[in-house]
Amino acid sequence: MKKGFALLETIIVITFVSVSLLLLYGTFTSMLLNREKNIEYDDAANIYKMYYLKEYLLLNGMNDYMNASDIKEISCADFNFTSCHTLWDKFHLEHIYLVPYRLRDYNEDDYASSFNNYLAALSNREDYDYRLVGEFFYENQYSYASIGVMRDE
């Protein structure tokens, strides 16, 4: 007469319970990550700032920098207009990068991990040549927004 679990039965039950709990853990963790992305990535106000910045930089020669196959950090030193600093300050911009669309291989060590995470989270469904990525810094927190750019737009 058998009065308890056999070792095999015990192992099966433990495995089943552990896998179920791990699946739950994975689901909740991804919910937390998505939540962070919602707050820090592509805020509506920041997207429009990037749009205006793109328009203004294109007027002032940004096309000259759209030939690299790697990420190019651009700054006001690259442009000959003094209002650039005004825009930078008003928009709380820390860095701006021109990133080739669908870029996959680049040296991640050269950039902040938050920037690398943002690039990894972007989709590549549309058809642009480059992406203008803005790194914003306020309230001691980095946030990111980007907009697609076509060469000779």
Partner: peptide, 13 residues
Amino acid sequence: LISVVLLLLLRVM
């Protein structure tokens, strides 16, 4: 084993 997984879950919750 179950306690470890439950602790992880609790932290996330």
